[in-house]
Design a protein around this nucleic acid. Structure first.
Lengths: 134, 134, 134, 134
DNA sequence: GTGGTCTAGACCACC
DNA sequence: GTGGTCTAGACCACA
C-alpha cells in the first residue's frame, strides 16, 4: 500500500508553460497548499517524482534544491526530503513578495502609460472580476 | 560643439539588470518619454550610440531593430534612424499591456498568499502612496 | 539511423537570391507547407540546421527568430524549436498579404505600360497557364 | 525665362518611400510618360535637379546613370542629358517586365495561400476597381 | 557617413 | 544537448 496515494502531481508539459523545474516546483507547492502534503510529511524521492512526471532526475533535483533554499522543504542525506514546519509561512511570504513586486511593476507601467492612480485601481478591480469569472 | 548635448543615455551595466539590448531599448524609450527625442528626430547612429554606451554595435543594432518592429522608430538605410510619428502611441499601448500582465500576476500571487480582493486593493493603494513619496 | 530522413531543406546559395536568412525561412516554410513538418514537430536545432545548410549559426538563429515572431514556430530554451499550432494560419495570412502587394504592384506597372485592365487580366490568365505547365 | 517651366518634378521625401535615387528616377519617368519631356529634350542638369529636389548631387547622378543604362536617356559629356529617341519603348518594356514578374510572384503566393486560379483573378478585379477609385 | 547582412566564436540558462 | 545573449570583425547598399 502506498501511503501517498492521494498525491496528485499534475502533468508536466514540456515546451508550454515555462521551465520544467518551475513546473515541478509549482506542483509541489500546490500539494502543500492543498494540504495533501503537511509539515513533516516526506516527499516522493527525487527519482520517483522524476519517473512519475516523466522529467529528468536533474530537473526534479533542481526543483527540490530551490524549494529547500526557499525554506519550504528540507532534505536529509540518505533519508529523504520533508515538508518544513514553516512551509506555509515560507510560501505565503514568497507569494507576498511576488505580489508586491508585481504591483510595483504595474505602478511603474501606469506612469509610463499616463494612467492615473484611480484608473489603475479601477483596472485592478476589473481584472479581479475577470479572474473570478474564470 | 555637440548639437545633441541634451540627450542623456544612461550608463549600461553589463549582466546586472537584464539583457544589455533591453537596457539600450529602455534608454531610448526614456529619452522619447522625457521629450528629449520627438517624432521625426534622428537618433544617434548605431555606431555612435554603441561607443557612447560602451556596448557592441550589434547590441545597439538589435535594440534599434526591436524598437522599429514595435513601431517606435524607423530606420532608413544610409540615412539613419528616426523617432516614428506614432512613437508615443506605440509606447503607451506597450505600457498598458505590461500593466495588465503585472496586475494579473499580482492577482494570482494574492490567491496563493490568501490575500483577499479588498486587501489586495489596499496593498496597491499603500504602494501607490509609497511610490509618490519617492 | 536518421529519424528525420524525410526533411529536405534545399541548398542555400550565398548572395544569389536574397539574404541567406530569408532563404532559410523559405526552406522551413516549404517543409511546413509540404506537411513534412506538422504543428508540434520539433525543428532541427539551430546548430544542426546551420551545419546542414552550410551557413552560420547566427543566420539560422535569425531565421528561427523571425519565424517565431511571425507565429509560425516557437522556441523553448534548452528544449528546442517547434512548429506552432497555428503555423498554417500564420503562413496563409502572410501569403495573402504578399499576393495583394504583388497584384497592386502589377496594376501600377500596367498603368505605366499602357496595358488595359482586360489586357492585364488576360496576361494573368496566360501566366497561370504557363505556371500549370511547369 | 526658364524654358522648362512646365516641368513638375514632385517633392522627394527622404525616409518614406524607398531609396531617394529611385524616387528621382520615378520623377523623371513620370515627366516622360506625361509627355512633358519628349525624345531629344534636354533634362535639367544633375546639379540643377539636385538643388530643385533638395537631394545630393550624387543621388541625382546615380538616377541619371541608371536611366542611361536602361536606355531612357543619354548623356553627352559637357553638354547635358537628353531623352533618348526610344525612351517610351524602353520604359514600356521595363514596365511590362515588372508587370510579369509581379504577376508570377502573385501566382506563387496564391499557391501558398491555397487561393484558386479563379479566386486569384477575382482578387485582381477587385484590386483594379480599388485602384480606379483612388 | 549611414543602416543591412553575414561570419566565427564565446558564455550563460535550461534540460 | 538545447536556445538566449554578447562580442569583434567584415562586406554591401545607400546618401
Amino acid at each position: 500500500m502506498d501511503d501517498r496515494s492521494s498525491l496528485r502531481f499534475g502533468p508536466i508539459s514540456s515546451a508550454a508553460e515555462g521551465p520544467l523545474y518551475q513546473q515541478v516546483i509549482a506542483a509541489v507547492v500546490r500539494e502543500i497548499g492543498a494540504g495533501r502534503l503537511a509539515p513533516g510529511d516526506m516527499l516522493p524521492s527525487v527519482r520517483k517524482l522524476a519517473s512519475d512526471l516523466l522529467v529528468s532526475v536533474i530537473t526534479t533535483k533542481r526543483a527540490y534544491d530551490d524549494l529547500e533554499r526557499a525554506g519550504v522543504i528540507y532534505s536529509r542525506q540518505g533519508v529523504g526530503a520533508f515538508v518544513a514546519p514553516a512551509a506555509s509561512d515560507a510560501l505565503r511570504s514568497d507569494a507576498l513578495d511576488h505580489l508586491k513586486t508585481a504591483l510595483r511593476d504595474a505602478i511603474a507601467a501606469a506612469a509610463r502609460a499616463n494612467v492615473s492612480d484611480t484608473q489603475l485601481i479601477q483596472i485592478l478591480r476589473t481584472l479581479i472580476e475577470e479572474a473570478h469569472r474564470t
